[in-house]
């Protein structure tokens, strides 16, 4: 393969330049191990743009600071593979241990002030927040006694649009019990099912960059946050800042779930790890702070 600026492969210097810029804007760092993936996705962006070469496209992206162009690159470069009830054992932990702990810490159902708040970040195309909604409605014995707010947030506007539409194919729904599909979804043809309006309207969606401290201040007093499989893509400083922003979004004593293979132990010591039967979860300390 030859590498020309229009042949779908970036030069080493262009790759460096782009990844540095992308890191500064998003906190997401691509090493050369992701070279092939990045090259292909950028080629797609250039083809979809009025520019013909990497350099002219990149100059427009940088100099004009076009947010729509940046958004498109982010959409191309962030992976959004997900399905309903993924890593379900964490939802088990939420129902069996975490939510009872939250209710107790907040003075019990009768004395609780304000709703119970759950955040899915990143929520991608919506499978996670809707999975949380389904499991609460079907399996949480307190759901009729407690107000629950579910929020989903993602940096990618395209996946958020899909999350809002909430229509899913069979592959995405394969782990959802048939009875739940019948109860909470409507067939919209071509083997796709849309989450019913009642649930869709109860889930609030937000466009959010987890590394943006100022913007993250919109998130406050969450009891539970799911932040799965995203911090691993961040470099040291960005993952630290993301962790610190998540800390600020949690109520003292609130719980943070990371992805199955992730651990705070390589990121930040500000949370207290807590051992549950289903695995380790992190808590914002309740102490002096």
């Amino acid at each position: 393969m030859t590498s020309t600026s229009t042949g779908g492969a970036l030069s080493d210097a262009d790759f460096e330049r782009f990844t540095e810029y992308f890191y500064k804007r998003t906190g997401i760092h691509f090493t050369s191990a992701k070279r092939y993936f990045v090259d292909k996705r950028i080629d797609t962006c250039i083809r979809n743009s009025p520019y013909e070469t990497f350099l002219t496209w990149f100059a427009a992206l940088r100099m004009a600071d076009r947010t729509d162009m940046l958004q498109q690159v982010i959409n191309e470069l962030t992976v959004n593979e997900t399905y309903f009830l993924r890593e379900d054992y964490q939802f088990d932990a939420m129902l069996s241990t975490v939510l009872p702990g939250v209710l107790a810490a907040r003075g019990g159902v009768s004395r609780m002030v304000g709703p119970l708040k759950i955040l899915s970040l990143p929520c991608s195309t919506g499978e996670e927040p809707y999975s949380i909604a389904l499991r609460l409605l079907e399996e949480w014995d307190q759901i009729d006694h407690v107000d629950v707010e579910i929020h989903g947030a993602d940096i990618d506007s395209e996946v958020l649009a899909k999350a809002a539409h909430a229509s899913y194919g069979e592959r995405s729904l394969q782990r959802v019990p048939k009875a739940w599909v019948n109860k909470y979804f409507t067939s919209v043809g071509s083997g796709r099912y849309q989450v019913d309006e009642g649930i869709r309207s109860a889930v609030t969606l937000h466009k959010m960059n987890i590394c943006d401290t100022a913007a993250m201040k919109a998130f406050r007093d969450f009891d539970v946050i799911f932040c799965r499989n995203v911090l691993i893509y961040f470099d040291e400083l960005s993952s630290r800042r993301a962790a610190e922003n998540l800390y600020g979004a949690l109520r003292p004593g609130g719980y943070l779930f990371l992805g199955h293979s992730e651990s705070m132990s390589r990121i930040s010591p500000i949370f207290t790890p807590t051992r549950l039967p289903e695995g380790i979860v992190y808590q914002r300390p309740t102490g002096a702070t």
């Binding site: 709703p115 909604a133 609460l136 409605l137 759901i143 009729d144 006694h145 407690v146 107000d147 629950v148 707010e149 579910i150 929020h151 009642g198 649930i199 309207s201 109860a202 889930v203 609030t204 937000h206 466009k207 959010m208 100022a214 913007a215 201040k217 919109a218």
Partner: peptide, 19 residues
């Protein structure tokens, strides 16, 4: 009770406290 939409969320824009 049950799932509730965030109160005061009629407008989709974020309410970021002033910095």
């Amino acid at each position: 009770m049950g799932l509730v939409r965030k109160t005061a969320s009629t407008e989709p824009e974020e309410v970021v406290p002033p910095e």
